[in-house]
Amino acid sequence: MILNIFTDIHELLLGLMSEEAAHILELVLIAAGYLGIFAILGLLLVWLERRVAGFFQLRLGPNRVGPMGLFQTIADALKLVSKELTGTVKADMQLYKLAPYFVITTALMSLALIPFSYEIHAFDINIGLFFLTSVSSIGVIGIFLAGWASNNKYSLIGGMRTGIQMISYELSVGMSIVTMVVLAGTLQISEIVEIQKDGWLIFKGHIPALIAFMVFMIAGTAESNRTPFDLVEAESELGAGFHTEYSGMNFAYYFLAEFVNLFIISSVAVVLFFGGWLSPFGITDSIPFAGLFWFGIKVVGVIFIFMWFRWTFPRFRIDQLLTLEWKYLLPINIVNIVLMALMVWLGLTF
């Protein structure tokens, strides 16, 4: 069986070396695996974005390199790797070079918490969702630093906008997660998925869950800096915003991290609202690794909605963005939490 593949590797390693060394090697292997997932996910999502953009914009998108243009992003990545790393003379070089790694590390750390299927789940701790939000709160610093250390006014404005935007909308993301946690009764991601075996949470929690889902989608778009909340890199205003001065691979880090963050946000939405890796009505739950397929389908569906937003909506202005968060989303969220608590207390959930 395929399920045994991990155990087989474990035993093979144990046969070759001591337990301690095997443990370290396994950790290294998992890390390498996740790095691979990171890169492939990023490239795949960039490709998907371009195809979706083409679909919305009456054009084809990349379709020459490889089947359906699948290798186009790989070609682009190779180009970026081979490019010169430029920077400004007056930049704070130390922080300037450090900044992309904040973004990429936090994205990678969050990825470890994503349950791709029942079998593939690297870091399943009891405070999973809380850990996810706390890690992603550090990612802001990377963008902040990039904006500041570039010593470019456009970058600086972009960086300041990020700070304001991320701090504000993290609240909404967190609150809508908390609403769903009230319903699920746990923060552990695998448990949240298990609870949904008899029905996805979006159906279980009906009205408050729907509100939470909408708020989560809005705030999630803002968290991943995508249109209509892409003020950070608003290209018609700021050129490229915080990463104006980055080139080559340093730029690619931001680019990849943006798409991986999109994936993480979508995964969280899938876990919280659409039953994670579970198949509808449990039709394929007995087959190992089938969860991977269902999880993938659902995540791509949510990602498609995000991309739909991006290629349809115009951009907000910074004060409108803050008004939306503090005057609308936050009060709605607070009321919604109370509503959800009442529902759970009165047993009105399905």
Binding site: I127, F131, S137, V140, F144, M160, G163, I167
Partner: peptide
């Protein structure tokens, strides 16, 4: 884990971001 996550949220994610923001 909980304490660690609180440490990250409150200190790293909260206070440092606030300081960076104001220092800028």
């Amino acid at each position: 884990y909980f304490l660690g996550a609180v440490q990250l949220t409150v200190y790293a994610g909260g206070i440092i971001v606030l300081y960076v923001n104001s220092i800028m």
